[in-house]
Amino acid sequence: MDIFLIRHTTPAVTYGTCYGFADLDLASTFAEEAGRVQGILPDKNFTVYASPLQRCSKLAAFLFGQTFRTDERLKEVNFGDWEMKTWDDIAVTTAKTWMADYLHEPVPNGESYTQLYNRSIAAFKELTASGKDTALVTHGGVIRSVLAYATGTPIEQSYDLRVEYGRAVHLHLNGNGLDVKGVNL
């Protein structure tokens, strides 16, 4: 079974803005980035799920037509009260408290990294349980979580795993578990 974790293309947002659940549109580079992703996907009949946020659903539609379902659990981390504020506008003391224990400390009216990780892994397990080739069009935090799960990387080290905008991770599920076939494809 092949699984592709596809990160949305570059969002249309000012650099330094905190966003997660915000439903951002995409930058003018969408067609170029989406075409690159399209070029790495094998010609297979994928079962496709996407985050309902437009930066993912637009890419899913471009890549797979309308043959995909959305799943709320594939959304990026919920930055709660910090959504769409610049990092400079977020109180330094509040940000420092969160950064000191982002694994367990939720953002005010948002969620912690552990909460994102747990919902991402639960979604991944459920959505890939069919054994059919699957593509998940989602966000960096979700992909980072699943990649950590697949590689046995401890959650406290998983934040260092990176997948660029408009790139994919290729996983292969076999009798021995998950193999990583490629990152940032």
Rank of each mutant, 00 (worst) to 15 (best):
R55N: 02
V183I: 15
G141N: 02
S130A: 13
K96W: 01
A12Y: 04
V48S: 07
Y49L: 06
Y19W: 13
L24R: 02
S120I: 10
A61Y: 05
A168T: 13
D88W: 01
L136F: 05
L161A: 08
G110P: 04
Q38L: 09
D133W: 02
Q157V: 02
S145N: 13
N118Y: 01
Y113C: 08
M99K: 06
F124V: 01
K132T: 06
F124H: 06
L59M: 07
D2P: 01
E72T: 03
T17S: 12
T86F: 01
L127R: 05
D179I: 12
H104D: 10
Q38K: 15
F30N: 07
I90K: 13
N45P: 10
H170A: 11
C56D: 02
A122W: 00
C56R: 04
D23N: 14
P108L: 08
T138I: 08
F4C: 03
N109D: 12
G35V: 06
D23H: 07
P154C: 06
E111I: 06
G39P: 10
Q157T: 03
P42V: 08
A100K: 04
N78I: 06
D71Y: 04
S158W: 03
P42M: 09
V146N: 04
S145Q: 11
L161K: 05
T10D: 05
I3P: 00
E32F: 06
L185D: 07
A22M: 02
K44V: 07
K132W: 00
H170R: 09
T97R: 14
V13K: 03
D101Y: 10
V142H: 03
E33K: 04
K85E: 11
D25Q: 12
G16W: 13
V183K: 01
F30R: 08
C56S: 15
T93V: 13
K132G: 00
L59S: 06
G20N: 02
C56Y: 07
A129L: 06
T29Q: 08
E105M: 12
T9K: 04
K58I: 01
E33A: 08
Y15A: 12
S57C: 10
M99F: 12
Q38P: 00
S28L: 08
T94P: 00
K132Q: 15
A148H: 03
N184P: 04
P42H: 10
A31S: 15
I3M: 11
E111N: 11
L171P: 06
R162E: 12
F46K: 04
L147F: 10
I40V: 15
G175V: 00
V107R: 05
G141S: 01
C56G: 05
